[in-house]
């Protein structure tokens, strides 16, 4: 995935779309104040300057699907593991809730189900049947909408054709009004995401930690 920070307006549509797509529970104001809010993708805001001359920077942060993910070796049960496609996957049913992965993750993008998930009415009517619900006591995180990836792959196989670039859109990328989020196959050098990742503006978040993230951030060129 590539994230163009010049295009991000900080609107938060990606966060909402992700909640709706992935059956992420809303925890309510009280629990959110206690640090139990779960957002598989969040828009980090950084302010520069003193009031009234303030500039704000937005940075959508989701699981970076690191190639050398610190969360994977520390998990005692292989709940956090790497798939053959290069995704960093979380097997909810295998998770026993040591929360070690969340500590090891430098990006803090892993979330713990502190209580049995609940949805205030009428949100309980819009649960996505393609995404499994998580039990109390397990870790969860961004999957790059693995259900959409599988669906597109199955469809392409049924149609007896190759997957097209841009055919798979995670919910966040689909909802982004300014097309700041671009998803695709990094192994295909001609895909949009590969092209953007090679851009001179491209940086990796906390790249010096050696986690080899698969998300490339295109740093801002414009001011304001």
């Amino acid at each position: 995935m590539a994230v163009d920070l010049d295009r991000c307006t900080g609107c938060g549509a990606c966060v909402t779309a992700c909640h709706a797509e992935n059956n992420i529970p809303t925890v309510g104001a009280d629990q959110a104040a206690r640090g139990r809010a779960m957002h598989w993708i969040r828009v980090e805001r950084y302010f520069e300057g003193e009031f009234p001359d303030v500039r704000v920077k937005f940075r959508p942060v989701m699981c970076q699907h690191c190639d050398a993910a610190p969360c994977e070796p520390v998990c005692p049960t292989y709940a956090s593991h790497h798939t053959s496609e290069g995704l960093n996957a979380q097997v909810y049913n295998r998770c026993i809730g040591t929360r070690y992965c969340a500590n090891a993750c430098p990006y803090n993008v892993r979330f713990f189900d502190f209580f049995h998930p609940q949805w205030p009415k009428p949100l309980h009517l819009q649960l996505n049947p393609d995404v499994s619900l998580r039990e109390v006591g397990v870790m969860e995180k961004c999957t790059f909408c693995v259900q959409r990836i599988s669906a597109a792959e199955i469809q392409a196989k049924a149609d007896n054709r190759e997957l097209q670039d841009g055919e798979i859109k995670p919910a966040c990328a689909q909802a982004c009004p300014s097309k700041a989020l671009v998803f695709g196959d990094l192994n295909d050098p001609d895909s949009d995401v590969s092209r953007l990742s090679r851009s001179g503006r491209g940086t990796k978040l906390l790249g010096d930690l050696g986690t080899l993230p698969k998300v490339t951030y295109l740093e801002r060129e414009t001011q304001g």
Binding site: Q31, R34, G35, R36, A37, G97, R99, A102, N103, N108, F111, F112, D113, F114, F115, H116, V136, G137
Partner: peptide, 10 residues
């Protein structure tokens, strides 16, 4: 559930 402890993100 674990939520009754003080544990929180992060």
């Amino acid at each position: 559930g674990f939520g009754i402890t003080g544990i929180r993100n992060p």
